[in-house]
Structures are given as structure tokens and as C-alpha cells.
């Protein structure tokens, strides 16, 4: 059971160069794999490929193999893939269906599309709202929420399909620090309590340091660094790859540069 990418190369329709080259990646249920990289390094494309929307919905040319629990994504239809691998984008506003009056109905949109019995839909909606911690938003108008709340509704909407894997494309990029904390806490809870495998593309490496087990850094569509989160996020090559290290790593370097000794106890005290 895993999402497995093997020798993946993807080129958008009409593009002369490949957006992804030689990608090898494995995501198991219950694990959080973070993805970082500079702009145009292929992070969003990786999300579309893993979730099967590229080439399934947007076209393009895919070489290599993308398997979700052993099944090739290219052999599976989008609505079937949605039940195995949920995808969340950056902008909460463009993820709303714009056809619902309440958050409850918005979260029910996916399960209703599957034609599930009403009792099953209602059960899934309350479960998803609970998993994200937003039960109190159920009667609210989804178009009148803050950015952080909107992104949590979008996350619950994806969760309601009960996917075994979640692919999140910079879910906090348009959020302020309060919204970022809301979403990061929800993701940590989902990873811990639902056992979903999460592929998290994120510029904010503090979020990755908080919840990722492993981190992959992309450069020009290829994997430049990969390994345990603590090791990769402390790698001195991170800055050259256009990724800002987490605050704790930067602080540790500053402390060492000033001739002092950095210790785990000091890090804990500062936190």
C-alpha cells in the first residue's frame, strides 16, 4: 500500500521542456512527505501528477509509472482517483463549488457526487468536519469565511471522500500566521488520527519541520535532496536550492556563528 512514482517524466501539452524528470517517490499511509523547492521547480506539477490530474484531466505527456496502491493512475478515471487521493490547492476560494449555501453542504458535495446514501453522506461530513476541527462552521456560508477557515473547509471537503492519501499544494501560502497555524495543526491531527499518507508541498519550512517525516527538495523538475525531514531541513545546500531553512535551523546557525553552543535544551527553552 503506497503511492509510488518510478522514473516519472512529465511534459505539459505544448511545452518543449519537461516539468518533471526522473522522479522517484514513495508515500505510505500514515507518513507525511514534505516537498520544497524554488518557484518553477515542479512542485505543483508533482501534485497534479501524483493525484492523476496530469495527464488525466489537463493532458500532457507522462512517462514512467505513477501507481496508487498498485494501480496506474493513467488507467483510472478522475472520480475514482478522488476516492484514493485527495488534492488541495493553494487558493481556498477557487476550490468552493459555489453551489452550496452552507459549509455542511459544501463538504457534502463530493460524497453526494458519488451518489452515496444520505445517512452515509451525513456521517462522512460530520467526520470530516471533526477531523479538521470545524464542526462549529457547519451552518455558515462558505463564501463568507476567513482564508484559514476557507482552506479548512476545502480540506474537510477533500477528506469527506475518505482518501487514503492527501496531496496538498501549498495549503498555507495565502494565509496569515494565524491561518497557517490553524491549517498546520489540522494537518498534524489528520496525519496522526486518520492514518492518511500526506504529500505536503510547502514553502514554509517551519510547517514541514513540524509535521513532515521526510522531505524532498526539487530543483528544475528533479529531486535534488531527499531524506528524513530533520536531516534535509538542516542541509546547508537548502539555501542554494532556493529554500529558506526553518527558523530553528537558522537560529542554531546564528548561535554557533557567534561562538556559542547550540543544544537541544536551548531549542526547547526557546520554543
Amino acid at each position: 500500500m503506497a503511492i509510488e512514482l518510478s522514473a516519472v517524466r512529465y511534459r505539459y501539452a505544448g511545452a518543449s521542456a519537461a516539468a518533471l524528470v526522473s522522479i522517484e517517490l514513495r508515500l505510505e499511509p500514515g507518513r507525511v512527505v514534505g516537498v520544497a523547492g524554488a518557484d518553477e521547480s515542479g512542485k505543483s506539477t508533482l501534485c497534479l501528477v501524483v493525484a492523476g490530474l496530469a495527464p488525466g484531466v489537463i493532458g500532457g505527456r507522462l512517462e514512467g509509472s505513477v501507481r496508487i496502491d498498485g494501480v496506474e493512475t493513467t488507467a483510472t478515471r478522475p472520480h475514482e482517483l478522488a476516492q484514493h487521493c485527495g488534492l488541495l490547492f493553494q487558493n481556498a476560494a477557487t476550490q468552493l463549488s459555489n453551489t452550496t449555501a452552507t459549509v455542511f453542504e459544501e463538504v457534502a458535495f463530493g460524497p453526494c457526487n458519488l451518489g452515496l446514501p444520505v445517512a452515509e453522506v451525513v456521517g462522512r461530513v460530520w467526520w470530516a468536519l471533526g477531523a479538521v476541527g470545524i464542526e462549529s462552521l457547519a451552518p455558515r456560508d462558505p463564501t463568507r469565511l476567513s482564508g484559514g477557515q476557507g482552506q479548512l473547509v476545502a480540506l474537510a471537503s477533500v477528506l469527506a471522500l475518505r482518501p487514503r492519501y492527501l496531496v496538498l499544494d501549498e495549503p498555507t501560502s495565502e494565509l496569515d500566521p494565524a491561518g497557517t497555524r490553524l491549517v498546520a495543526a489540522a494537518l498534524a491531527r489528520i496525519a496522526r488520527e486518520t492514518g492518511a499518507g500526506i504529500l505536503l508541498v510547502e514553502h514554509k519550512t517551519d510547517v514541514l519541520a513540524q509535521i513532515a517525516d521526510e522531505v524532498v527538495v526539487l530543483e528544475r523538475g528533479a529531486v535534488a535532496l531527499s531524506g528524513p525531514a530533520a536531516t534535509v531541513l538542516a542541509d546547508p545546500r537548502l539555501v542554494e536550492l532556493g529554500v529558506e531553512p526553518p527558523a530553528e535551523v537558522r537560529l542554531a546557525r546564528a548561535v554557533r556563528a557567534s561562538g556559542l553552543e547550540w543544544s537541544a535544551a536551548l531549542a526547547e527553552a526557546i520554543e
Binding site: 484531466v57 478522488a82 488534492l87 476550490q95 457526487n113 458519488l114 471537503s157 471522500l161
Partner: peptide, 24 residues
């Protein structure tokens, strides 16, 4: 551009699933 992202977001929520949808 917004339509493209919304299309993908809806597809990721089984919008194109065949058959009758549930009415709440």
C-alpha cells in the same frame, strides 16, 4: 486561469462521477 483551477478542484471532488447524485 481561475476556471482551470476550479475545474481541477471539482474533479478532485468526484464531480464527473457517473450516476445519480445524492440530494441532501
Amino acid at each position: 486561469a481561475e476556471v482551470e483551477e476550479r475545474t481541477m478542484a471539482l474533479e478532485a471532488r468526484a464531480f464527473s462521477a457517473p450516476g445519480r447524485q445524492t440530494l441532501l
